[in-house]
Nucleic acid binder design. Structure first.
Lengths: 353, 353
DNA sequence: TTTTCTTGTGAGACCGGTCTCAAAAGGCAA
DNA sequence: TTGCCTTTTGAGACCGGTCTCACAAGAAAA
């Protein structure tokens, strides 16, 4: 099949000429504004069809100032958490005839800044961001278009935000572990810390990370577990060393008898590492993870998870943003979605000697 | 933290006035074209900084005709196959300073058409599409900008295409099954057929689906298996009934002793259904699936998969498209990437009585 | 019939950049 | 000093839409 060469691009003026009316009139019917008589409208429409006119959205945005698209900056589309959230966002956006320009930050602030700059230059009408770090939020604060935060709240930034009840979720999950008799419980997260962590959880400024650690520590305190802070492991991302870190953790003398993982990617790595160490879940070690990823239900044993309403997260944040684009000027909302724990078979009594 | 209200948007003219030069000169330094004396360049740059000038990409695209973005239409971002491929695409795009506008077709041709129309109206410089159906490709054929096809080839469409060696992959996987003694082998795919399938595989026009079936049938013929066509099951998508279909398949009198699944989403459904039927892999039934999804390595037993270079698929198609955007006018290329089979533990000898 | 509205239409400015073209300025040889 | 060539600068058209405004025509009111 032959492909059409460059198209000379039919414009309003062309249609106007064809329909023998003024450019203004043709623009009126084509743009769907102003009033035009039925007869002329039909003529213009016919001319447009004959010429195969396609509006140039760019030119339209140029004058209206609205581009009809929103920018979304996530940490990593590859992570099923984000791809599901993005799905929620784009489903809502499509319903409003808005489209989504996606950018990956790779959880790197500089990449995030640059992505935002580019999206802004493209005149997106609004922005949904999952801030990579929260120490560095100047670039977010000075964004002049509507902004909404996804999954991670920034206390200093008074904008629409949708998160889940991370603290409570971590609390409940950890409590499930302490009630099973565990006292050496590790919390493993992919997040990297800017400074040094000295148990000063309240100083962590990425809300998701902070709240979860707070919840984790709450539960540990309730169970009178001392020094729980030392069992918090950061930076277990996807680098090669992360796997090694986990192996070391699992092989250490007083290895944890239970682990809470911050996301399904980390948990999968943990699961593999546990296996490679010849450990058995839940006999030797218990495991709970955030995010009900598809794999968690088919392992042996299936993994107990904290089920976050990820799709709804994306859906809500998009709804909030779009409402704002439509002129809503209520004070920013901070929606916290509930999580549920899906109990499967990965939690057992403590194996501590 | 206070959010800035509407920005009055600083333009080239503003900068020019501030720097006391003409608009044209200011535009030259800001746009980085033409020649300007060092003294004036510095002055303009300083004025721009003082005013916090940010270029309006839309206006720029307006005159240049290039928007600096490409459109990507995939079946479903939620599917890990696509999210990984999209990752590959956006990584490459970012390197070239191009950004990606993402659209979901939901594997529906009408949605695909509309997405393409919107993207084209947004003046994307190029388009990467995973055609949902191949009966209906008029809308693809008349696209006037560079187009590249991802994962699915369209013989009638002579454009850059990157696929994997589906036929060979299916052949090798099926052969692995026949060599293990299996003779009742089912092929289960999420793809839906436009017409009726009567064994006329060559008439299927979605290349991925056709090639795989062809490979499957090749292997069956080699093993002198009769009526293999009857064991091909379409439409096992994510609808409720799909699961039921599988259950029926598994509970039927002469249920297959081995299954080849077309993607990891279908395979996961199958895996669950097999379990629910109380069947054991690989004792009662063997399973191989396309796509090395993360879950396939952690199940008991781990699943033998056809590993497709998904990231590379996205990477290559983006490279091809971007090369074309840069003016390359070599004849369209059709790249076929190799697959490898990762043998795990889900294939055993036939359990046929 | 004349005046006053209403409604439909056309002319042209405008959005914020790019780019062509011609004029101005500077450099150098004669 | 004059002339010619090169480099720098400014004026203004242009991209493809939207939108304001003035005006024409027909309808309703006086």
């Amino acid at each position: 099949m032959k492909r059409p060469p460059k198209a000379p691009s039919v414009t309003v003026s062309d249609v106007a000429r064809e329909a023998k009316v003024s450019k203004a009139t043709a623009a009126r019917v084509l743009g769907g504004y102003g009033t035009v008589s039925e007869a002329i409208r039909a003529a213009v429409l016919e001319a447009a069809k004959a010429l195969d006119y396609r509006p140039n959205e760019l030119a339209r945005s140029m004058t209206t100032g609205r581009s009809g698209s929103i920018g979304v900056v996530v940490g990593d589309i590859e992570n099923p958490f984000f791809s599901l959230a993005v799905r929620g966002i784009s489903d809502v956006a499509r319903l409003s005839g808005i489209n989504v320009i996606l950018a990956n930050s790779g959880e790197d602030v500089e990449a995030e800044k640059s992505a935002i700059r580019v999206l802004l230059a493209k005149q997106v009408d609004g922005l949904i961001v999952t801030p990579a770090q929260s120490g560095d939020i100047g670039h977010l604060a000075e964004i002049a278009c509507p902004l909404a935060l996804l999954d991670r709240a920034l206390p200093e930034l008074d904008v629409d935000t949708v998160t889940v009840d991370d603290r409570d979720a971590a609390l409940r999950a950890t409590r499930m572990l302490t009630r099973a008799g565990h006292r050496r419980i590790a919390y493993v997260t992919a997040a990297v810390l800017s400074g040094e962590f000295r148990g000063a959880a309240s100083k962590i400024n990425t809300s998701t990370v902070r709240e979860r650690i707070l919840g984790f520590l709450d539960a540990c305190r309730d169970a009178a577990i001392e020094g729980a802070e030392r069992n918090i492991h950061f930076g277990s991302g996807r680098s090669e060393s992360a796997h090694a870190v986990m192996q070391r953790l699992l092989r250490s003398d007083n290895r944890p008898t239970a682990i809470l993982a911050s996301d399904s990617v980390v948990a999968l790595d943990l699961f593999k590492a546990i296996r490679e160490c010849g450990l058995n879940i839940p006999r030797d070690i218990s495991l709970i993870t955030f995010h009900d990823a598809d794999w968690t239900s088919v392992t042996t044993p299936p993994i107990t998870v904290i089920d976050q309403p990820v799709y709804a997260l994306g859906k809500s944040v998009a709804e909030l943003l779009i409402r704002r684009l439509k002129g809503d000027d209520r004070p920013p909302e901070r929606i916290v979605l509930p999580t549920t724990i899906i109990e499967r078979m990965s939690v057992g009594p403590s194996s501590a000697t």
